[in-house]
Amino acid sequence: MSQHSDTWKIAGREFRSRLMVGTGKYADFQQMAQAIEASGAEIVTVAVRRVNISDRNKESLLDYIDLKKYTLLPNTAGCYSADDAVRTCRLAREAGLSDFVKLEVLGDEKTLFPDNEELLKAAAILVKEGFTVLPYTSDDPIMCRKLEDLGCAAVMPLGAPIGSGLGIRNPYNIRIIMENVKVPVIVDAGVGTASDAAIAMELGCDGVLMNTAISGARDPIAMAESMNLAVRAGRLAYLAGRIPRKLYATASSPLEGVIG
């Protein structure tokens, strides 16, 4: 299958790129815009924060993101309760006029692991209010099934803790999650370098979401391009169908006609 025809959908909306990128922690908006461009992503995450009333000279992030080209995915980063997350989503919808939200409800500042109990509560409310909910969750197949049952548009299990760069620590759970749900599976968090993104795609995930792996690289724009290639390479390898792993060798050259 050519890359061209290999599109995917979230809640009926079609996308070509399977890479979703964050907009945090760049040196400046210029660098962020160039990195997004190089990544080829069509969905970009943003955070919702208080406007600084006393210093109103700050540029707006949205001056650097062409909303005709990119789909905004506001997140609920920093929320530790279902209430705060729901409130943030309602504000995001009003500011951005889109129903897409990346729902995260955190349980702990050190690990930033999700509080899945609060996550389920928030997801249920938001789905009822008509949001397209993309929840960041543990790499837990049962949680992912519950989130799908609630009506979430995708599930986003973590590969490893946010910003850790540890890669996909439990590829077997990710595989089980994909067997367990029909909605898109997007690995969110944990990617450190291009091979991690490729592995997510080779596992058959529908997409990968990352921020720090790109913005924290020595050259974020070059890393964004490498992630673009890695996601496409991994996806193509998945579609091509890898050979089975075997313990012993299988010769690539003919066994007949060897001299001597």
Partner: peptide, 10 residues
């Protein structure tokens, strides 16, 4: 009153 906007985030 809470007044919010979008900032960079992941």
């Amino acid at each position: 009153l809470e007044i919010v906007w979008f900032v960079g985030g992941g």
